[in-house]
C-alpha cells in the first residue's frame, strides 16, 4: 500500500500540481489585487503594496461622491436587460424558424446570416454612427440597444440547439390544435430553458461589458454605463486608483455573480459555438 502511493506520486505529478498552482495563482491574483487595492490609497497602489489598508470607506465614499452610482448602475442594468430580452426574443424566434420551416430561399438567407459573423465591428461603426446621428439618436440608450438586436451568433446558437428539440412534441401539439406561435410559446420555450439560460449569459456579458460603441454614441455623464465610467476614471492624468478599484469591483460583481450562480450554463454558453 505504502509503496503504491509512493510510486503514484511521481515527478510528473509534482510538476502538474506546481504548474497548475502557479497558473491558478496568476489567474486569480488580479482579483485579489482589486480587493486589496480598494482598501489602499492611490500612492500605495502604484507602489505595489500587497497588504490590506484602511482606506476602504474613504475610497467608497469618494467613489460615490464622484459618480452617481445609482444612476450609472441603473443605466447599465436597463440597457443590459432590454438588450437581453429583445435579443433573445428576436433571435430565438429566428433560429427556431430557420430550423423548423425549411425552404431554399431561407437556407440561402441563413448562409448570409452566418457570413455576417465575419464582419468586424470596426467596419460597421462609421456608417452606424452616421445613421444613428441622422436618426437623432446620438446620446440615447436606444442607440446602444438597437444595432445588436439581431445577433447572428445567437440565431446560429438557437438553430443548433433546436436540432435537439423533439419533432414529436410539435406533432402532438398540432394534433391538439395549437397554432405555430402557441407551440413556440408554450412548448418550445419551456423545453429549451437551458438554451435560453446559456444564451442569456452570452448576451448579458457582451452587453454589460460593451465599451467601444457606447463610448462613441454616449456623451452626457448621466447616460453613461459603469464600463464607461471606470474607463474614464482610470484614464485621468493622475487616476485615483483606490476609487478606480472600488469602481472596478462594482462593475465586476454582476458578471461574477452570474458566473458563480450559473456556472454550468455559463460554460455551456461559451462552448455553444462548437457543438
Amino acid at each position: 500500500m505504502m509503496k503504491n502511493i509512493f510510486i503514484r506520486f511521481s515527478f510528473a505529478d509534482l510538476f502538474t500540481y506546481l504548474f497548475l498552482a502557479v497558473m491558478a495563482f496568476l489567474s486569480i491574483f488580479p482579483f485579489i489585487w482589486m480587493v486589496i487595492g480598494a482598501t489602499n490609497n492611490s500612492i500605495d497602489i502604484t507602489k505595489g503594496k500587497i497588504s490590506f489598508g484602511d482606506q476602504l470607506w474613504v475610497n467608497i465614499a469618494s467613489f460615490f461622491e464622484q459618480v452617481d452610482v445609482g444612476l450609472i448602475f441603473w443605466n447599465s442594468s436597463k440597457i443590459t436587460i432590454i438588450t437581453c430580452v429583445l435579443t433573445l426574443g428576436i433571435s430565438s424566434v429566428a433560429g427556431y424558424g430557420f430550423e423548423v420551416f425549411r425552404s431554399k430561399p431561407r437556407e440561402r438567407l441563413y448562409t448570409m446570416v452566418l457570413l455576417t459573423l465575419m464582419i468586424p465591428f470596426a467596419a460597421l461603426m462609421i456608417p452606424l454612427f452616421i445613421s444613428i446621428a441622422k436618426a437623432g439618436l446620438i446620446n440615447t440608450h436606444a442607440a446602444i440597444i438597437l444595432p445588436g438586436l439581431a445577433s447572428a451568433f445567437i440565431i446560429f446558437y438557437f438553430r443548433q440547439c433546436t436540432k435537439a428539440f423533439p419533432p414529436e412534441l410539435r406533432d402532438a401539439a398540432k394534433v391538439d390544435g395549437l397554432k405555430e406561435w402557441q407551440i413556440f410559446l408554450y412548448i418550445y420555450l419551456p423545453v429549451m430553458k437551458s438554451t435560453y439560460a446559456a444564451a442569456f449569459i452570452i448576451v448579458f456579458m457582451a452587453s454589460w461589458n460593451n465599451y467601444l460603441w457606447p463610448l462613441i454614441v454616449l456623451q452626457s455623464n448621466e447616460l453613461k454605463t459603469i464600463t464607461l465610467v471606470i474607463s474614464s476614471l482610470a484614464s485621468a492624468y493622475y487616476p485615483d486608483y483606490g476609487v478606480v478599484m472600488v469602481g472596478t469591483i462594482f462593475a465586476t460583481i454582476p458578471t461574477l455573480a452570474i458566473f458563480f450562480l450559473m456556472q454550468r450554463q455559463f460554460v455551456q454558453g461559451m462552448l455553444g459555438a462548437v457543438k
Binding site: 428576436i90 433571435s91 424566434v93 429566428a94 424558424g97 420551416f101 446570416v113 467596419a123 460597421l124
Partner: peptide, 17 residues
C-alpha cells in the same frame, strides 16, 4: 418567424457594411 431578425440585420449589418 425569421423576418424580424432579417430586417434588423439588413438595417444594422448589411446596409452599413
Amino acid at each position: 418567424f425569421v423576418t424580424p431578425a432579417l430586417v434588423l440585420m439588413g438595417i444594422f449589418m448589411i446596409y452599413p457594411i
